[in-house]
Simulated assay, not measured.
Amino acid sequence: MSSYLLSIDQGTTSSRAILFDRELRPVAISQQELPQSFPADGWVEHDPESIWESVQFICRDVLRKGNIRAADLAGVGITNQRESTLVYRLNGRPTYAIEGSIFVAGATVQWLRDGLQRLLPSGNRSTTVGRVPCDV
């Protein structure tokens, strides 16, 4: 029977996983710091591939430390950076991650929308991102 919970906290400075037993006692913990760059005041950037790799590492590591298999998990909870914007190339590969103020993320989204308007065929200028309709 599945009897463990895995908690993943992907934050600005590190990724952390905690494995809990049925009584919600911590069984194992894994944490890995993330490299950061600061291109301008108030801006923090991460390599999105390093974020993904760190999450994979901590999950595998905490399962190894707890001596359990993924099939033994009853559930997984995830929290992440609340002010993050990932930028993807047209081929679907992430380019970089920006953390910072809503203003910075909003300015980045506007810059991307302006750029997309030049890339999309003229008959395809309206799209929906998530549940937020936007004209690009």
Rank of each mutant, 00 (worst) to 15 (best):
S37H: 08
F57P: 06
F38D: 07
N67S: 15
L120S: 06
L6S: 02
L5N: 04
N124G: 05
R131N: 15
E23M: 10
G66W: 01
Q36R: 11
T127N: 03
S101P: 02
R113W: 00
D9Y: 08
L63E: 06
S37A: 08
S2Y: 03
Q56V: 11
S7H: 00
W52G: 10
R118V: 02
Q31T: 12
R25M: 10
I18P: 01
S7D: 00
S84T: 15
D135Y: 13
Q110N: 14
I68K: 12
A28I: 02
L24F: 12
L24S: 08
D47P: 15
R22I: 06
I98N: 08
L86D: 02
A70K: 09
A28M: 03
Q81L: 05
Y96N: 10
E99K: 10
S37K: 06
G77M: 07
Y96I: 05
E45I: 09
P94W: 01
G11I: 00
G115H: 12
A71H: 09
P133N: 04
M1T: 15
G75Y: 07
R131E: 14
I8Q: 05
A74F: 07
V44M: 10
E53R: 13
G100I: 11
S101R: 08
Q81N: 05
C134P: 00
P121D: 11
L6K: 02
V132K: 14
V87H: 03
I102H: 13
Y88V: 02
P94K: 01
I51C: 01
R93F: 02
G115M: 09
S84P: 06
R82F: 05
S15C: 13
Q32V: 11
T128P: 10
L19M: 06
T95K: 12
P121W: 02
R16I: 02
E53A: 14
V104S: 14
T95G: 11
G123L: 01
D47W: 14
D9V: 06
R64K: 11
A17Y: 00
R25S: 14
E49R: 05
Q31M: 14
Q81W: 07
W43N: 09
Q81M: 10
Q56P: 08
I51H: 00
R60D: 14
V55Q: 13
T127K: 03
I102L: 15
P48G: 01
R113F: 00
Q32C: 08
E53V: 07
S14I: 00
S2G: 03
L5W: 14
G77P: 04
L86G: 04
L119Q: 15
F57T: 04
I29R: 14
S126P: 03
G130I: 02
I98S: 09
D114Y: 02
I78P: 05
R82Y: 05
C59L: 01
L86C: 03
R60T: 12
D9P: 09
F20V: 04
N124D: 12
M1R: 15
N80W: 03
W52N: 09
Q36Y: 06
Q31F: 10
D47Y: 15
F38S: 12
T127Q: 04
A105V: 13
R89W: 06
L112V: 07
